[in-house]
């Protein structure tokens, strides 16, 4: 479904991504791990067009999407969440979802449960918020997004993507900043999405939770891909241990 070949990104003299290759096929969940500053978010930004890759190609459903505008990439079916949540602070939470439901992708494909094409978008938005775990009968969906705690904002990010009916969902650390119980309620949501046919790339620091959902994991360090494979293989790899824990200097 998505194939990334020889992807590199330089910021001035700094190499953020160096010759990254990977592929993901339809229906898969791929985990991407790596220490802080290893280039995970840069990788997402390159795939989704928010920054331009320096070299390489990104092929989605047989089409090279490198260099395309972010909104055009979204409309092909690749949706992403932001690690630092980007809600519309001055609007109530449910109004945040009117915008993706109004967009061309949702109108063409129908969006979440056809909400982009017909029906009252406000009702569909409330349904969608309930789906991601906003209590329907409470005041939470009507509160200004700027006043919501992190847990809800992460769900709101996810809901914005779901509104678009993504083919490929890229989650940038949706678990970070959440409590154990919040993560526990999020995991089934991700699994349910995957079962409904959405391919998912998950960038995550919470490895234990990630390995519950991701069957295949890729590790990055300083812009280089170290290894790709089953979670257990990746965690057993010496280079991954070194990247996370630092090299053993043999004191």
């Amino acid at each position: 479904m998505l194939t990334v070949r020889n992807l590199s990104k330089n910021f001035g003299g700094v190499t953020a991504l160096n010759d990254i290759n990977f592929a993901i096929s339809k229906g898969e969940i791929l985990g991407v791990i790596g220490p802080n500053g290893s280039g995970k978010t840069t990788l997402i930004n390159c795939i989704t067009g928010f920054i331009k890759a320096s070299a390489g190609e990104i092929v989605f459903n047989g089409r090279n999407i490198k260099g395309m505008q972010p909104h055009n990439i979204v409309n092909l079916g690749i949706c992403r969440t932001f690690q630092i949540m980007r809600p519309y602070s001055s609007m109530p939470a449910y109004k945040n979802l009117i915008i993706p439901l109004y967009g061309p992708r949702a109108r063409k494909t129908g969006g979440w449960r056809g909400g982009g094409r017909h029906g009252d978008r406000n009702i569909i938005a409330l349904d969608l918020l309930e789906e991601v775990g906003f209590e329907r009968e409470s005041k939470v969906p009507y509160k200004l997004a700027g006043t919501l705690p992190t847990g809800y904002l992460k769900r709101l990010e996810l809901a914005r993507c779901l509104a678009l009916n993504p083919d490929l969902l890229i989650c940038d650390e949706v678990f970070s900043g959440l409590s154990m119980s919040e993560i526990a309620s999020m995991v089934p949501l991700i699994e349910k999405l995957n079962k409904s046919g959405v391919t998912i790339i998950m960038i995550e620091h919470r490895l234990k939770e990630l390995f519950k959902v991701a069957k295949r994991v890729m590790a990055i360090s300083y812009g280089d891909k170290i290894i790709e494979g089953l979670p257990a293989e990746v965690m057993a790899n010496e280079k991954v241990k070194e990247a996370y824990l630092g090299a053993d200097e043999g004191v």
């Binding site: 505008q69 909104h71 809600p87 519309y88 001055s90 009117i98 109004y102 978008r121 914005r160």
Partner: peptide
Amino acid sequence: EDIGLVIKGIKDNDQSVRASGINI
């Protein structure tokens, strides 16, 4: 109206609007 929300969304968070597939 909905288009008004999109316009207001650009003020609040233009990157989010782009990530919703809308050409800002």
